[in-house]
Simulated assay, not measured.
Amino acid sequence: MTAELDFLQQTLHQDIPLTRAMGLTVTEWDGRRLCLELPLEPNINHQLSMFGGSLYSGAVLAGWGWLTLRLGAAELDDCHVVIQHAEVSYPRPADGTARALCEGPSDEQWSRFEQTLRRRGRARLALRTWVLNPANEEAVRFDGHFVVQRDDA
């Protein structure tokens, strides 16, 4: 596991204990794309597929984790990241291990966000995340608006 994956895994399990109970693991980060995995067993519902709340959590955490890692890379790790608003849809069930993905915004959007955050100490960023089922089909489509605030703002 790379240093960034290890850092995010530890942060999630320490700061958001539910992630440990969900069996969530951080599996991929290349500086642009984050992938989290959610096993079925601790997240199963009465239909023998993944509970919608677990899928929602995976989608939120993919965005939250992506932002946390990108802020660290930009030496802006003195920030708090929170979800402000979200729209979610569940087009297909996840009947096995699911993967939550976030690829982040365009470079231009990130640059505007980072400039605002550095100048004002607070900024908002819209992120789209997906959760894919074992057949690589979209089980969740998530559009979230995150607010980031620097500790000294």
Rank of each mutant, 00 (worst) to 15 (best):
G52W: 01
N43I: 08
W110L: 15
Q10M: 10
R32K: 14
V131D: 12
E137Y: 01
C79P: 00
H13Y: 03
L117K: 10
D151Y: 05
E75R: 14
P39D: 04
L8R: 02
R124G: 14
P42W: 11
N136A: 14
V82H: 03
N45D: 11
L61P: 04
S49N: 12
D143L: 09
Q84L: 09
D95Q: 08
C102D: 02
R119T: 02
R92A: 13
E137V: 00
A123K: 07
A153N: 15
A135T: 00
G72D: 09
P91N: 09
V81H: 10
N45P: 00
A123G: 05
R120Q: 13
C35W: 01
M1F: 12
R32F: 14
A74S: 05
R112P: 00
L55K: 01
I83F: 07
P91K: 01
A74Q: 13
R118Q: 09
R120A: 09
A3W: 03
A73G: 00
D78Q: 09
E41W: 02
L12D: 06
D6H: 13
S57H: 10
T27M: 06
D30Q: 10
V81K: 02
Q14E: 10
T2I: 08
N133P: 07
L101F: 02
R141G: 15
M22Q: 10
V81C: 02
G96L: 06
M22C: 04
A153R: 15
E114I: 08
V140L: 13
G52I: 01
A135F: 00
P93R: 11
G58V: 10
Y90G: 07
R118W: 12
Q109Y: 08
G63R: 05
E138Q: 13
E4W: 02
A98S: 04
Q14L: 05
W110C: 12
V60G: 00
L101R: 12
P105H: 04
V81F: 13
A74Y: 08
N45C: 10
A153D: 10
R92T: 09
D143R: 04
D151F: 10
L71W: 06
D143G: 14
G31K: 04
R33G: 03
A21L: 10
R122W: 05
V60E: 00
G121M: 13
G63N: 06
Q115I: 02
V148Y: 01
M50C: 15
T25D: 11
D30I: 12
P39G: 07
D30G: 08
P17W: 02
F146Q: 15
G121K: 05
L36D: 11
Q149I: 06
W29C: 01
S57F: 04
G144F: 11
L24S: 05
G121N: 07
N45M: 01
C102E: 04
R70A: 01
V82C: 02
T97N: 11
R112M: 14
E28A: 15
E28T: 15
A100M: 01
